[in-house]
Amino acid sequence: MKQTTISIRIDDELKKEMEETCRELGLNITTAFTIFAKKMSREHRIPFEVSIDPFYSVNNLKAIDESIEQIKQGKVISKTMEELEAMENE
């Protein structure tokens, strides 16, 4: 079968992570993309669910930024699990 070259651009860190995962699976990136391409061609769809992780919503990211700012300002209260459970039972 005649082969061709495909050139794609991805983030360098993502490439390193993918190479490591492929290595752990006994594959290389070319084989992983070939598996993806064959499955996509056979099924006429992306072979996995594509969705937005709700963790990264604008509201969550804003809340995280606000929490980080509170920590930087020393506005932190720490409680043990026992103290939190006692508060829940009040």
Rank of each mutant, 00 (worst) to 15 (best):
D11Y: 13
N60D: 03
P54I: 13
Q70H: 14
G74P: 03
T21A: 14
D53G: 04
I8Y: 02
I46T: 09
N89V: 09
M18H: 00
R23T: 06
Q70M: 15
T4E: 02
L25E: 15
E66N: 14
N60H: 12
F36G: 00
H44N: 15
E24W: 05
E17M: 01
T80W: 10
E20F: 08
H44Y: 11
N60Q: 13
P54R: 15
E82A: 03
S41C: 11
V76C: 05
L61N: 06
E24H: 02
M81G: 05
E66T: 10
L25W: 06
F33I: 07
F36L: 08
E24V: 04
S67E: 12
E43V: 11
I6T: 13
K75M: 14
I77L: 14
G74F: 13
A32F: 07
K79P: 01
E90Q: 09
L84T: 00
M1P: 13
K72A: 13
N60F: 14
E82F: 02
A63G: 07
K38H: 14
F36H: 08
A86G: 00
E83C: 03
P47V: 05
M81Y: 10
D65F: 08
K16P: 00
I35C: 08
I46H: 02
E90C: 02
E69S: 12
A86H: 01
E43Y: 06
S7E: 08
E82G: 04
I6Q: 03
A32W: 06
K79R: 10
I35M: 09
